[in-house]
Simulated scan of single mutants.
Amino acid sequence: MTHTYRTIDVPVRGGDLRVGVWEPDGERTVDVLAVHGVTSSHLAWPFVVDALPGARIIAPDLRGRGASTELEGHAGMNAHADDLAAVLDLLEVPRALVVGHSMGAFVSLVFADRHADRVSRLVLVDGGLPLDVPAGMSPDEVIQHVLGPTAERLAMRFASTGDYLDFWRAHPAFANDWTPELERYLAYDLVGEEPELRPATSYETVAEDSIDQNTGTALADALAGLRHPTVFLTAERGLLDQVPALYAAERIPTLIEQYPGLQHVAVPGVNHYTIVLSKRGADAVARIVREEPVVSSPGA
């Protein structure tokens, strides 16, 4: 084992935020703030943790997800960003390298804009830059266009944890990447009682965040003011292991041209999920993180 895992509860607006912390067993080289996706949780990061033996990984359940579902008040990009600042405050981390996956990449950008002095570098993993959403869509149409079956799953009920795992076993994204780490991640997502188990994240929370992400001003302001060294990683395939990916290959040169300070890294052989939830995807993310040469925090 290269890390010791624990969870803490961090006071934020409206309640407590659950946070996973992986402390390195040896000398710490960097603090990494890891921000998960739209219906995910802090347990999305075990492969990245294993690939970074010297890093302390700090990963919250964003409000409305995982064990952070009892918070009062609205979500949205600014709310999540301010929650991240509260996490670093409690752990006495002055600056961190921030890794965000999917919606977490959008949150990370807004965090870096609102709390610029808390961020040393940004790693955006298959998210963060504007999505290719047709104009004129309603909020529900935007969610369906981007997330599709991911959003539909939130209304489903499952008789047992085994039934939920069986549901995911049939998912094309994990056809070649079913692991004990994935099972633990998926089981953690369930709330309620048998036979009425359900995903922790509500459709209303996804809608609130997706509308803010795609139509609010926070992300546009953050991208316009981008001033941290930033790497943008993209998966070869999409949420259903399909091509085109979330960021189609033909769009990427135009996106990079719009943000000339951005470094792009294409990650082959992974989809939107397995870019973090597989060893080969996590190794690609970790290679970028290991470029950080400075210890971010003296310890907490």
Rank of each mutant, 00 (worst) to 15 (best):
residue 149 P to G: 06
residue 130 P to R: 04
residue 144 Q to Y: 07
residue 71 L to F: 08
residue 98 V to H: 01
residue 141 E to F: 11
residue 148 G to D: 15
residue 114 R to Y: 05
residue 96 A to W: 04
residue 89 D to G: 11
residue 74 H to Y: 10
residue 121 R to M: 09
residue 71 L to N: 14
residue 98 V to E: 02
residue 99 V to D: 00
residue 82 D to P: 02
residue 94 P to T: 14
residue 141 E to C: 12
residue 130 P to C: 10
residue 119 V to Y: 07
residue 72 E to I: 10
residue 123 V to M: 04
residue 98 V to R: 00
residue 96 A to I: 09
residue 117 D to R: 09
residue 85 A to I: 06
residue 94 P to M: 09
residue 85 A to C: 07
residue 141 E to Q: 15
residue 85 A to H: 10
residue 95 R to K: 15
residue 128 G to M: 03
residue 110 V to G: 02
residue 73 G to M: 12
residue 74 H to E: 14
residue 139 P to M: 05
residue 150 T to K: 01
residue 142 V to K: 10
residue 145 H to P: 01
residue 77 M to A: 13
residue 78 N to L: 11
residue 105 A to F: 03
residue 96 A to M: 08
residue 141 E to T: 01
residue 135 A to F: 07
residue 139 P to D: 12
residue 149 P to I: 10
residue 143 I to W: 03
residue 119 V to H: 05
residue 112 A to E: 03
residue 122 L to M: 13
residue 119 V to C: 10
residue 110 V to M: 08
residue 131 L to Y: 15
residue 93 V to C: 06
residue 135 A to M: 12
residue 151 A to P: 01
residue 131 L to T: 12
residue 78 N to V: 13
residue 107 V to F: 05
residue 74 H to G: 09
residue 150 T to C: 09
residue 125 V to F: 02
residue 143 I to H: 04
residue 122 L to F: 04
residue 127 G to W: 02
residue 83 D to A: 07
residue 93 V to I: 15
residue 92 E to H: 14
residue 145 H to Y: 12
residue 83 D to N: 10
residue 79 A to P: 04
residue 100 G to V: 05
residue 122 L to D: 05
residue 131 L to W: 13
residue 94 P to N: 07
residue 87 V to M: 03
residue 88 L to P: 00
residue 93 V to M: 04
residue 83 D to E: 10
residue 138 S to R: 09
residue 149 P to M: 09
residue 136 G to P: 05
residue 100 G to R: 00
residue 80 H to S: 06
residue 129 L to T: 07
residue 102 S to M: 10
residue 130 P to N: 12
residue 94 P to S: 15
residue 97 L to N: 00
residue 131 L to S: 12
residue 140 D to I: 04
residue 115 H to K: 07
residue 149 P to F: 09
residue 86 A to V: 08
residue 123 V to Y: 00
residue 134 P to N: 11
residue 96 A to Q: 02
residue 102 S to P: 03
residue 136 G to K: 05
residue 95 R to W: 02
residue 70 E to K: 14
residue 118 R to M: 11
residue 133 V to C: 13
residue 71 L to K: 10
residue 75 A to G: 13
residue 87 V to I: 12
residue 132 D to F: 03
residue 92 E to C: 09
residue 151 A to I: 03
residue 125 V to P: 01
residue 97 L to K: 00
residue 122 L to H: 02
residue 119 V to R: 01
residue 92 E to W: 06
residue 114 R to N: 06
residue 70 E to T: 15
residue 106 F to N: 11
